[in-house]
Nucleic acid binder design. Structure first.
Lengths: 135, 135
DNA sequence: CTGACTGCAAACGTTTTGCACGGTA
DNA sequence: TACCGTGCAAAACGTTTGCAGTCAG
């Protein structure tokens, strides 16, 4: 689905500012607010910080975007996707998506708790391929 | 190990302020900064906010404390423990520790990535026992 | 054409800092 | 006793808000 359609689906106008933010996230995957500010300003120098804040908040609320919270790191944003985990490189800081089937994990965990589990959020602390090879 | 010993081990003086913060975390498990402020002030009304900030930051840096980051929630702090996951109740907000063996999950994940995985951070979105029974 | 959206500047709440004093080891 | 740690007040920082003008639908 195009970014315009996604926005319309949530009754948000497809302004160039919003499309620019979505474009940056699409292209870079996981970006901090600071990163969004810098990257959007390359394409759209007049985009104001308050507009970024307003749109990020609104799109998070509508679940177009998701917050990615990682221990000892700033908060990142990503375009909301199906269940996936994150691989975080402790050397270079890169964040990669990692397709993983959480059903097995949930099933196993469910067998040892009375709470009703609905989903799992998982991130892996790693050293990425590139950092491994340039050790 | 006592809190005094933990602090000494990291070359930090065992001040009443620090012990008070650790006591609150020991007793309540997972607490926000706001919560730490309120709870410590019950026992220690003169404890200043800047001291809380300074000590939390220092103890996180020394890994005496860990940040607990959860989607759509404030940041919590806990005393650093062995590998464990969190059960987060979407109804009442309660956070419970959940002993889980991450080795299997890591092994399985490791088989489908070239990155070298060292650890996994896992939280489960749940409805807790109490909220299930009072539905 | 109209309401949603934006940019600007000011306000706000949170976190950090400088400094003089006090307490731990 | 020396120095680390604290409390206070001020500063710095990130985020939100009010408003007047603009633009997408």
């Amino acid at each position: 689905m195009s970014h315009v359609d996604i926005l319309k689906l949530h009754s948000l106008k497809a302004t160039p500012q919003r499309l620019c933010v979505l474009g940056v996230l699409e292209q870079h995957g996981h970006v901090t607010l600071e990163g969004i500010e810098q990257l959007t300003k390359l394409k759209f120098p007049t985009l104001s910080l308050s507009t970024i804040y307003r749109n990020i908040n609104e799109m998070v609320k509508k679940e177009i975007l998701s917050e990615v919270k990682i221990a000892n790191k700033k908060e990142y944003y990503e375009i909301t996707k199906e269940n996936h985990a994150h691989l975080i490189c402790s050397k270079c800081g890169k964040i990669e998506d990692f397709i993983i089937n959480t059903d097995d994990i949930i099933k196993k965990a469910q067998s040892s708790t009375c709470s009703k589990i609905s989903s799992a959020t998982i991130s892996f602390d790693t050293v990425c391929k590139e950092c491994l090879s340039t050790k």
